[in-house]
């Protein structure tokens, strides 16, 4: 897993919970790298899971909710760091399909060996975007957080429904974004099922 995910997670903890909590999470996770991450490196995703487990202990929140929150944070960071990916895009239904063909293409230019998840998108006749997430790593929650943040960012009137697929272990999930006319974004959030 690319180092940027690790550095951003630690950055989020430091920004929201402070340096002391971040230090405890890193020390408690007892990872091989001992928290010395660089965004251009590649690390075992188990270290991220260890860090999240420690964060859950520190905060008392479920790991899945933490990973989803991290996904939302990560979207905002991507928005700030890579604004070019969002140029000319005005909705999540038009943005999400570009992840595979545009964002991942650029990532592979810098990191040809990156093992990226796949986001297979299909637009149904009723305007519903069906996005199938598949990864070797169990981070469907992270994907959900990213999608959720995307919907919020574009202020889309859509409902988001998640169906876990495969071994139900977070490596495979289908997300359905259905336009809901005149429906406030809060409703979109409440429509999310895990």
């Amino acid at each position: 897993m690319k180092g940027i995910v690790f550095t951003e997670l630690i950055g989020m903890v430091e920004a929201t919970l402070g340096d002391e909590v971040a230090d405890r999470v890193i020390c408690g996770a007892n990872t091989a790298t001992d928290g010395a991450y660089t965004s251009v490196g590649t690390y075992d995703y188990q270290e991220l899971i260890s860090l999240v487990e420690q964060l859950a202990c520190e905060t008392g929140q479920p790991e899945a909710a933490l990973v989803q929150s991290f996904g939302e944070y990560l979207f905002q960071r991507f928005l700030a760091m890579f604004p070019q990916f969002f140029d000319g895009v005005d909705s999540s239904i038009s943005f999400l399909p570009t992840i595979e063909d545009r964002v991942h293409v650029e990532v592979r230019k810098l990191y040809p060996d990156a093992e990226l998840p796949t986001f297979a998108c299909k637009l149904a006749n009723d305007g519903t975007l069906v996005l199938e997430y598949q990864s070797k790593r169990p981070f469907a929650d992270l994907a959900e957080g990213l999608i959720h943040a995307s919907v919020r960012h574009f202020q889309d009137d859509v409902s988001l429904v998640r169906h876990n697929l495969g071994d139900q272990d977070g490596t495979q999930a289908r997300f359905e974004l259905t336009p809901t006319l005149n429906q406030p974004n809060d409703t979109v959030a409440s429509a999310c099922q895990t």
């Binding site: 340096d19 230090d23 790298t33 010395a36 251009v40």
Partner: peptide
């Protein structure tokens, strides 16, 4: 805390240099 953070940053920089 700061020492540990500094040590992590140093290690991260060394790793980044190695990768570079």
């Amino acid at each position: 805390l700061l020492r540990r953070k500094l040590e992590r940053e140093k290690n991260a920089r060394r790793e980044a240099e190695r990768l570079l």
